[in-house]
Simulated assay, not measured.
Amino acid sequence: MLEKISIMLRLVAPKKGDSQKDIDNYKKLSGEAGELITQGYLDLWKTKYFCIEQEYVIKPEWLNDGTRPDFIAFTSDPTEVILIDAKNHIPKDNKFFIGNKRLNEYQNLISKLSTNGRKAYLLFIMPIGGNSINYFYCYTLQDFLSGQDSNDRSGKEVTLSDPINAYDMPNEE
């Protein structure tokens, strides 16, 4: 866990006047930190999962619709999978935002995977970071789809709930 805290502490948010390159670099490092922390949670919970490479140019056919999750997790039910998108965003006005384009892409992916008796779900896991690295927010795709329309952007928002302590989650053996 110390490695994860170290990564979070190295992130310095861009300031007004920073170059687009600095802003893009921060977003990339921030996303990688969120994925690493989420992977630590999945390991802690003894979850069976695959990481999905984000930079690889070739994608499987079922991911060619645009977005791709960071992880595919498996449950004790062999007919279901849980797609996990790790987010490492600073909430604005106590809300998290996902754009309509991304929500539509995920809806299409879930529909495509939920056929022939299979079930697919999507979770957004959002580590808090800093001294609260063991805490995270977790929302489903449905939470966002039924969330509020954003006033200033094209998408949906969810209001923050109480964070979850990663160590309070049950382990699946």
Rank of each mutant, 00 (worst) to 15 (best):
Y41N: 10
L42M: 05
L42G: 03
D43L: 14
L44M: 03
L44Y: 01
L44T: 01
W45Q: 06
W45V: 09
K46L: 12
K46P: 02
K46G: 06
T47R: 01
K48R: 03
Y49I: 04
Y49D: 01
Y49A: 03
F50S: 06
F50A: 13
I52R: 02
I52D: 02
E55C: 10
Y56N: 06
Y56S: 09
I58A: 11
P60F: 09
E61G: 00
E61H: 05
N64Y: 08
D65Y: 12
D65T: 09
D70Y: 04
I72E: 00
F74H: 03
T75W: 04
S76P: 03
S76C: 01
S76I: 05
T79P: 00
E80G: 09
V81Y: 02
I82E: 04
I82K: 05
L83W: 04
A86E: 05
A86S: 14
A86I: 15
A86L: 14
K87A: 05
K87E: 00
N88L: 06
N88E: 05
H89M: 06
I90H: 07
I90S: 10
P91M: 11
P91G: 12
K92Q: 12
D93G: 02
K95G: 00
I98V: 15
I98N: 09
G99M: 06
R102N: 13
L103V: 09
L103K: 14
L103R: 14
N104D: 07
E105G: 13
Y106S: 10
Y106T: 13
Y106K: 10
Y106L: 10
Y106F: 15
Q107E: 15
Q107L: 12
Q107N: 13
L109M: 14
I110M: 02
I110T: 06
S111E: 15
K112L: 15
K112P: 10
S114L: 07
S114Y: 07
T115V: 15
N116V: 07
G117H: 11
R118W: 06
Y121K: 14
L123V: 10
L123Q: 14
I125K: 01
M126K: 07
M126D: 02
P127F: 08
G129S: 05
G129M: 02
S132V: 00
S132P: 00
I133P: 04
N134P: 00
Y135G: 06
Y135W: 10
F136E: 03
Y137D: 08
Y137H: 15
Y137L: 04
C138F: 00
C138G: 07
Y139I: 12
T140A: 01
Q142S: 12
